[in-house]
Design a protein around this nucleic acid. Structure first.
Lengths: 315, 315
DNA sequence: CTGAAAGCGCTTACAG
DNA sequence: CTGAAAGCGCTTACAG
């Protein structure tokens, strides 16, 4: 059945025909028990329904399909406990490897434990300090700098930052990138101009009130991602203002949706496809015994200017 | 380790301590080989990144987590081949059951084969003619009738239908529901008022041109789902018209996003949570040996009126 | 080129 | 209450 060259063609065919006839089903558990290879790769991210991760997953799926690996998906919703349960399941099933976007607070010991149990890991989108495994993510500080500088070059001086958290490497890098760009241009950064929060449309929509109430009336908002930006733009529209005219808004990620948002969203392409593709390939390489070095691989983001940004206008 | 009552407490604790100390990992493949229970439930849908399925999946996830079942997810992208490969994988892994939203063209023999191999199946969102398994889906004909009648009661007489396909049970039911509502009100249904297509924002957005070019200038559009409706509204906005004022638009599904769309979308709540919850529970019942009868269970949809619909206005 | 034996790590049933 | 044996369905290595 395994197309071994040690078996005569005629015999092989005879056996295969018979297998088909009786509806034989290959038992992967038994095979895996013997070979200690399962053909399963685990993938765990914050939330697979978030289009940012969804786009990464799609390219991982493409790569793994090609190598006939089954992929086991899970959300961790940034709950360490849920992530650990999933990792346990992978170990129990004898998974061959894992691609993870680590939950907030993942200690490097967790990664070391995974690797120590013979489960090669590759990280995406977020890094874990002290973990010696390959990491693929965008260059967030650089990327958010592109968005901030774009607004500055249009003449904006009061620029708010909406959404995100300090608890992930991504969140810290994006905030620093924004602060650095502002300071490099000699602009003030006020604590009140920052509205942290979840990274969803809902959160962006709900942040609108607070944003519009800021005393110094910022003329632009750098949003943590496209979802927050689209939510904020909807909120701005509801308030009777026009995004891209009255208030400039930038996103981050360049989701497929960014193009059809109204107005079309100026955003930073974050290389989701690239991240997924390279993470999957690197993991497959490791499974095939190729020596791979740990450390971050930063995908360089690009600014995509559309209609949600323009010259400042006082309210 | 399995907390058998046949083992003395002291022994149990001694063994468990030792297991922890040496980092013992339970081998589920071996256990499953012996017991022929794997703790794996497969879930296959058109596209997990589609928020409609995502919302169903979330409630399935909640139910399965509660019963400590691992769930293996897959998209089939309406490719029969991909669906079959996934089912094969489930059989090979000795999965305990499968929840599926069958790909377009799934023959009832495929479902019978699955069941025949000891893999209990439950269908969601779409049914398969001749398959004798439980099906949970919304009452699409009734639901689309709610949307259509709402528009008719506002005074609309030229109502288009955007998106969807005749190739799924859902698609056929929604189209018939629309036609029936129109005819019951003595209104004409023109072939040119129907613009079938994919069920995505992108598709809704791209349908705008064709929609606006229809000669009889419909004053309202019944959309196949919220994604198409949001895409269409974005297209209408770009064309300089205002959805809910110049053109009324209804969605279907009542995604979380419907509330924050601009204008807020009038749509039909389709009971995603309910579908997922009941499908998962029914499957778990079957796994526990409870006798379950096949046949459709229709969740009754509800109309949620918001701001994207109003009285007709001539263009 | 083919066949028979051993063993992967569990669970079950049985003997002590 | 504990221990030893058999067997789930594969793959590997070895003998013919």
């Amino acid at each position: 059945m395994r197309d071994s060259p040690l078996v005569a063609d005629a015999t092989r065919e005879r056996i295969k025909d018979h297998a088909r006839a009786i509806g034989y089903i290959y038992n992967r558990r038994a095979a895996s028990l013997r070979t200690s290879r399962s053909g399963i790769v685990g993938v765990v991210v914050h939330d697979i329904m978030n289009p940012f991760f969804a786009e990464i997953l799609r390219s991982i799926e493409t790569e793994l399909d090609r190598s006939r690996q089954t992929f086991l998906l899970s959300n961790h919703y940034d709950q360490l406990e849920k992530q650990r349960t999933f990792i346990d399941t992978l170990l129990q099933l004898g998974a061959d490897g894992v691609i993870m976007s680590p939950a907030i607070g993942t200690p490097s010991e967790d990664i070391a434990m995974v690797e120590g149990n013979g489960l090669p890991a590759v990280l995406i989108a977020r890094s874990v300090e002290g973990a010696d495994v390959p990491v693929f993510r965008g260059d967030d500080a650089y990327g958010i700098g592109l968005a901030t500088n774009h607004l500055i070059s249009l003449g904006h001086t009061r620029i708010a930052m909406i959404g995100g958290t300090d608890q992930t490497s991504t969140g810290r890098d994006r905030y620093h990138g924004y602060v650095n760009a502002m300071e490099a241009a000699g602009l003030e950064v006020r604590e009140g101009w920052r509205i942290p929060g979840p990274r969803t449309k809902q959160a962006g929509f709900e942040a609108t009130q607070r944003f519009l109430a800021i005393e110094e009336k910022p003329t632009a908002a750098v949003c943590w991602n496209d979802l927050v930006a689209i939510g904020l733009m909807n909120g701005i529209l509801r308030a009777g203002l026009t995004p891209g005219v009255d208030i400039s808004v930038t996103g981050y990620d360049d989701l497929e949706e960014a193009v059809i948002a109204t107005p079309a969203l100026t955003t930073v392409w974050n290389g989701q496809r690239e991240v997924g593709r390279r993470a999957a390939r690197t993991l497959l390489d490791r499974l095939n015994g190729v020596e791979v070095h740990g450390g971050q691989e930063l995908i360089r983001p690009e600014l995509h200017v559309r209609s949600s940004t323009g010259v400042p206008r006082e309210r």
